[in-house]
Write a protein that binds this DNA or RNA. Structure first.
Lengths: 234, 234
DNA sequence: CACGTACCGGATACGCCGCATCCGCTTATA
DNA sequence: TATAAGCGGATGCGGCGTATCCGGTACGTG
């Protein structure tokens, strides 16, 4: 079973599995799949022990296939980050800059929303090794162009800046994290609010896509113990 | 030396110092002062050992005066949270609801900005004991009234909700935390953006109060190791 | 001044947690 | 069936935060 919104195809077997015995290759895939699920559900805080357990193999097996957690992260998140890059590039290709900006934010946030590991990697910039950092650095220049284009077309306020796109994501990420188990897509409400503060075309307010939280739900969200719930890894 | 923006008067000696020997009473005050500084600078993660060291006393002394960290937190933050309540109440007293809303957010965020401990306590809802929770719960009803009043006066979009005020703070808190040592008041830029997405009176954009980050600064902020720097406690 | 007690200090013990290894056992494959 | 590749998980290690303990110190009272 996969976490909602995720279910990456980890079935790209045969990348490094050539010289492996049949069972070894299978275990490698099971480890990658388990790591994929666990990182998405709980973030990068999960241990190789957790991953091994979830994969149904021993810890030793995990450490034979991957020297440490970093390596595993790099292996898994290189392509996912590339997916974010692709989304940005695709947004840039849209001739309507506002639409590009909008869909970039919506899609990028949706991806992060469904994968806590990805979210942490994009927020932190220290996590992950060489390969991951490399891909991450590919995003900035695209965002720059995206914002420049939007300003050229006059669809965003003139004092808007490329860096704003980064920090808006950071801010909304915090909301996502806090409300994950109360109202998972509440962040979209605040994305809309933000966008209404940015766009030039503002005769009317954009309709807010998500209901606000009730006082009880709000209290629940703010009262929820932070730093995850690794107990139920099963 | 105090942390910028803070410097609470911890000099309300004589609350529980009656039966204490002179040196003991003084140590108690020094502990409170040290805790005040350290919580503000580094958040609630600091240990009683850190606090004792900063106060220039032994760890044993710290544990004799306060059974544990919770007790110390309660002692210190009850009044600070009350200060936030007061700010909210004061905002509610303003006949101009928009101005009230604005100054509430500005002041509350400014207080949180200058005190990482306060910020964490307001974000978390689990931290602190009875007394702190009690004060915290006093804020919600005031915010409700604040928002209701603003909607009645027609100064905010009709679909705005009380809970939005909470989550805007949460979101901006994340920005504050990330950019603290690069551009400490950058959060105000995003507060303005948010407010421009909320107010009804929107012929022109509000002038953004803070310059955006350069690409280098942005990278520095996102690359900065999270979860504080308790090494330099001195 | 001198004595007893309240107080001090910080080395130390404890528990927890995550990372990683090691080595006796299992199983694929030739 | 032999043998080497692979497996598993108990175990050791190191770091960190909490809290205690007890020999030493100094306040302040008689």
């Amino acid at each position: 079973m996969c976490y909602p919104h995720t279910c990456y195809g980890v079935g790209m077997a045969g990348r490094l599995d050539q010289g492996l015995r049949k069972d070894a290759a299978e275990n490698r895939e099971r480890l990658l799949a388990a790591a994929s699920d666990l990182f998405a559900e709980h973030g990068l805080g999960v241990t190789l022990n957790d991953i091994a357990h979830r994969a149904g193999v021993g810890v030793g097996t995990a450490y034979r296939h991957f020297p440490n957690k970093e390596a595993l992260i790099d292996e898994l998140f290189e392509e996912r980050l590339q997916a974010v890059v692709d989304v940005a590039q695709h947004a840039l290709d849209d001739s309507d800059a506002w639409n590009g900006l909008l869909t970039f934010l919506e899609r990028a946030l949706y991806m992060r929303h469904g994968d806590r590991g990805l979210d942490e990697i994009m927020n932190n910039g220290v996590l992950g090794d060489e390969r991951v950092s490399q891909v991450r650095d590919r995003i900035a220049p695209i965002i720059t162009k995206l914002v420049t284009k939007a300003k050229d077309q006059g669809v965003v306020r003139p004092d808007f800046d490329q860096s704003d796109l980064i920090f808006i994501q950071l801010a909304l990420s915090a909301i996502t994290e806090a409300t994950r188990d109360v109202s998972p897509d509440l962040y979209r409400r605040y994305l809309t609010l933000f966008l209404d503060g940015i766009r030039t075309d503002r005769e009317v307010f954009t309709r807010l896509p998500v209901k606000p939280l009730t006082p009880d739900e709000t209290h629940a969200a703010m009262t929820r113990p932070r730093r995850s719930d690794l107990r139920d890894v099963s």
